[in-house]
Amino acid sequence: MSPTTTSTRDRILGVAAELFYDKGVHAVGVNEIAATAHASKLSIYRYFPSKEILVESMLQAHSDRIHDWLQRETADAPEGVERVLALFDVLMGWFAEPGYRGCAVINTVTDTRADPAIAVIARRHLARYRALLSDMLEQTDVSDPAQTARQLLLLIEGASVVACIDPSEDAGLDARDVARRMLAPAH
């Protein structure tokens, strides 16, 4: 693929991600994506034969970015409980950003009524989240890292939804505090 091809495809994905996040999948048409990305509809359909494939590609790329970002942002935190709590700190910063509209994965699943291909991407996203948490928990005294990772994921996703509806720091702070208390014996 040439640099121009890659940048056009990436630009379309980036614009689609922003528009879908801001307005929802069903509220955004290919014409709007093309106009905003300064690309032709032909270019969009060359890279993404349907809007559904564009949504799937956007969501997978988003999931990859989120997981890379979380690993990068927590890598310097001390292993164990402190690294888990650092993950909550990173997410609290995200929840507090202007324009935060919740988790794009959850939003897309909801907006597409759990389209089977989207549901697969969402399940993989959550499994990767649990694996990240489980890996972090291996460095603690937690007796069942997999179960604790699932419980922490429920805290994270719940805080994400609440922060979207009630934009204050409280949801993230409360989730972090519950996580800290859950992991206190592991200190």
Rank of each mutant, 00 (worst) to 15 (best):
residue 76 D to H: 06
residue 11 R to K: 12
residue 25 V to H: 06
residue 2 S to V: 08
residue 33 I to A: 13
residue 43 S to P: 08
residue 40 S to N: 07
residue 38 H to Q: 15
residue 46 R to M: 07
residue 40 S to T: 11
residue 50 S to G: 09
residue 21 Y to D: 13
residue 79 E to R: 12
residue 151 Q to P: 04
residue 171 A to R: 03
residue 25 V to T: 09
residue 56 E to M: 10
residue 122 A to I: 07
residue 127 A to N: 14
residue 105 V to Y: 09
residue 68 D to S: 11
residue 104 A to R: 12
residue 160 S to W: 01
residue 82 E to H: 04
residue 88 F to T: 00
residue 165 I to T: 15
residue 97 E to H: 10
residue 1 M to C: 13
residue 184 A to W: 00
residue 44 I to E: 02
residue 10 D to M: 10
residue 14 G to H: 05
residue 111 D to T: 05
residue 146 A to P: 01
residue 174 D to G: 12
residue 84 V to C: 01
residue 34 A to W: 10
residue 1 M to S: 15
residue 167 P to S: 12
residue 174 D to N: 12
residue 111 D to M: 09
residue 43 S to Q: 14
residue 62 H to Y: 12
residue 145 P to R: 01
residue 176 R to W: 00
residue 53 I to D: 12
residue 57 S to E: 15
residue 47 Y to W: 15
residue 168 S to V: 02
residue 101 R to G: 13
residue 103 C to F: 02
residue 39 A to Y: 08
residue 125 H to L: 09
residue 152 L to W: 00
residue 123 R to Y: 12
residue 101 R to C: 07
residue 75 A to L: 10
residue 172 G to C: 08
residue 136 M to R: 06
residue 136 M to A: 07
residue 78 P to H: 05
residue 109 V to G: 09
residue 42 L to P: 08
residue 102 G to V: 01
residue 23 K to C: 08
residue 21 Y to Q: 11
residue 68 D to E: 12
residue 151 Q to C: 08
residue 107 N to K: 10
residue 63 S to P: 02
residue 41 K to E: 13
residue 39 A to I: 06
